[in-house]
Amino acid sequence: MEHVDIDLPGLFRDDLPQEERERIERHLAVCPSCRGAWEDIALLGGPQRRRRPAVPDGYFAALPSKIMEKRLHPVRTNWVRPFFDILRPAIPLAAGALVIIFLVRSAVPPPVTTDRLAVGANEAVDYLGFDLAELSSDLAQVVEPLLSDRALASIGRDLQETGLEDLEPTTVSEVVADLDESETDELISKLSERVIL
């Protein structure tokens, strides 16, 4: 069976020339395959093709002025909003996580900090009880970086490791003064090996 070049959808659209319509109908009469396709397609013909969903009353009358208004006063696109919409479900989870972190952190005792040690960070002379000027150049290279806040926090941890975690507010000089020689050596040794900056 030679299939004609047919525009089956055109049949229900009623926009085919009469000759073309007749040609297709003749073909459908003898071709079960095309007739089957047409029977499917014919479902879509009829009045529902013309039927339109509802539009609010007066919509088209008001549309030109809405467009004019939007043209004259464009609303800046809020590009943040879509991201917020996407992230919105995660907000309660994030809040919960923050609460848990806060609770866990408050349950853990605070580490020995620079505040607790009451170190005068700028007073290099008092630092570890030594005057930098009197230190050998090798040791000075180790001690100089320790003057930063980050380094002082590190010292706090070292003091903890040497069993001095229960210190009352004091200066490092005072702490070191209480150490015996081996403890001082140990402390300096720990500080020397630590990568702190």
Binding site: L8, P9, A37, D40, I41, L43, L44
Partner: peptide
Amino acid sequence: IRKVAEHVK
């Protein structure tokens, strides 16, 4: 058209 028709059927 075929797909829509099949869906409707």
